[in-house]
Design a binder for these strands. Structure first.
Length: 188
DNA sequence: CCCTGATTCGC
DNA sequence: GCGAATCAGG
């Protein structure tokens, strides 16, 4: 029962903010949820925005910074951390569906990362923030959306789905088997 | 192949 | 008004 998503004032406002902030249409679409990048672009134009067309296409400022090196932040995660995260997930999201609304207001400023000498709860702050989430990345929410520690799984998502294989299994379970499988799938 | 925004046009 | 399909490009 997917509540039909439409351009409510809040969503339009968020769209405006993110677009003017230099976010790409696909990123915005992923954050809004329920819409494709085409929908976002179409809306942007209808709103009279779209002043993004400088030389060629994309805004170099926003695209300038790229992580590179690591294909997927998750792949680089030590198993131990992954386990910790899974454990946290169990506690944070016992049974609620991952279909939460991203936010009334928006996110969390960048979590300050010290030199690397402080191992303070790295486990939870290691995944991807909403800013680095791309359409091809797993959107499984981890943690409380109202806290700065909120992250998304970020693993390579299955084409056509918003989640990676692991989380898709958890997300799309038949109601009848949920009780039995959640524990299994949830614990990797 | 990955991605970007722009435009068209049926609904 | 909406957004998929398509176009044009990096």
């Amino acid at each position: 029962m997917e509540a039909v998503v439409s351009w409510t004032d809040e969503r339009v406002e968020l769209l405006r903010r993110l677009w003017e902030d230099g976010q790409s249409a696909s990123k915005i679409a992923a954050q809004l949820g329920g819409v494709t990048r085409n929908a976002v672009i179409g809306k942007v134009h209808r709103l009279g925005l779209g002043g993004r067309a400088r030389s060629g296409t994309e805004a170099p400022a926003a695209a300038a910074r790229k992580p590179t090196a690591v294909a997927s932040p998750v792949d680089a995660l030590p198993e131990a951390e992954a386990v910790v995260i899974e454990a946290a997930l169990e506690t944070a999201e016992p049974t609620s569906p991952p279909n939460h609304r991203p936010a009334p207001d928006f996110p969390p400023p960048p979590a300050p990362l010290p030199a690397a000498a402080e191992p303070v709860q790295i486990a939870v702050s290691q995944r991807v923030t909403i800013m680095d989430l791309r359409e091809s990345m797993c959107r499984w929410p981890m943690g409380d959306p109202t806290t700065p520690e909120f992250r998304f799984c970020g693993a390579r998502s299955i084409t056509g789905l918003p989640y990676c294989g692991h989380h898709a299994q958890i997300a799309y379970q038949p109601a009848t088997e949920r009780k039995r499988d959640r524990r299994v799938a949830g614990f990797r």
